[in-house]
């Protein structure tokens, strides 16, 4: 059973097909870089994978189960464009909130652990409103990892995060891989993504133009993929 199966997913906005017949199987333990131009459908696909949006046709299965199932959502971690934290709550309260929503047995301990790992334990009771940009980002990363997801979905992580947050993210992603978890990230920051990725999927005009293992050409020449498989 694959970690993630996208079965002929179509998504329409009105009559406009934003995603056309996307078929993708991702095996557990891989990191997929979802590439494509702005408006190609990367975010739409990620939102469907995250259960934030329903496909018009087709199905998404996470470990064989429907993406909108409660038990499936428990295994998915999503980091979108926003940090998804409440400004008026403290760092600790934010993490506790999500810990409770995900039904963690001991949200307080897990929150303390995550704050420690992201270097935010000193400001655990500070309001997010007062945090610097970098601190907010690290807290956002902590939130995503609170419930220890098997499948991590990242939307443009490298544009939103600063170096230290990316460092934390790398460590945590490595940890996910260790236990056989899967990462899907959308990005147009090619170099960072390709260094991290084991696989690459290129979306063009709502269609999958290429999917396969990352190879050396891609690493040496980031434009190679677009030139080879993309349209001019």
């Amino acid at each position: 059973m694959n970690a993630l199966e996208v079965e002929s997913v179509w998504k329409y906005y009105g009559d406009f097909p934003a995603l056309r017949d996307i078929k993708l199987n991702v095996e557990a333990g891989s990191t997929v870089a979802l590439l494509g131009r702005n408006g190609a459908g990367k975010t739409t696909l990620l939102r469907i994978l995250a259960g934030l949006s329903k496909p018009s046709k087709g199905k998404v299965r996470v470990k064989g189960a429907d993406a909108r199932l409660e038990s499936t959502r428990r295994r998915i971690g999503v980091l979108g464009h926003g940090i998804s934290l409440y400004d008026e709550l403290s760092a600790n309260e934010n993490l506790l909130l999500f810990g409770r929503l995900y039904g963690l047995p001991d949200p307080a301990r897990r929150a303390a652990e995550m704050l420690d790992r992201t270097g935010l334990d000193r400001v655990r009771d500070g309001l997010v409103r007062e945090f610097s940009r970098g601190m907010r980002q690290r807290l956002a990363v902590a939130r995503v990892f609170m419930h220890d997801p098997d499948l991590l979905l990242l939307d443009e992580p490298f544009t939103a995060l600063d170096d230290r947050a990316i460092g934390v993210l790398h460590t945590l992603i490595a940890e996910i891989h260790q236990k056989g978890g899967t990462v899907v990230m959308s990005t147009h920051q090619l170099r960072e993504a390709l260094e991290l990725a084991t696989h690459v999927a290129l979306i063009q005009r709502g269609q999958l133009a290429f999917a396969g293992e990352r190879n050396q050409e891609m690493l040496q020449d980031t434009g190679w993929l677009y030139r080879t498989y993309g349209e001019s």
């Binding site: 906005y13 009105g14 009559d15 406009f16 934003a18 408006g39 190609a40 005009r205 709502g206």
Partner: peptide, 14 residues
Amino acid sequence: SREIDSLRRMAHAY
């Protein structure tokens, strides 16, 4: 009007 909307989206997307 839906068709027009989809054509406009297509023009913007591609």
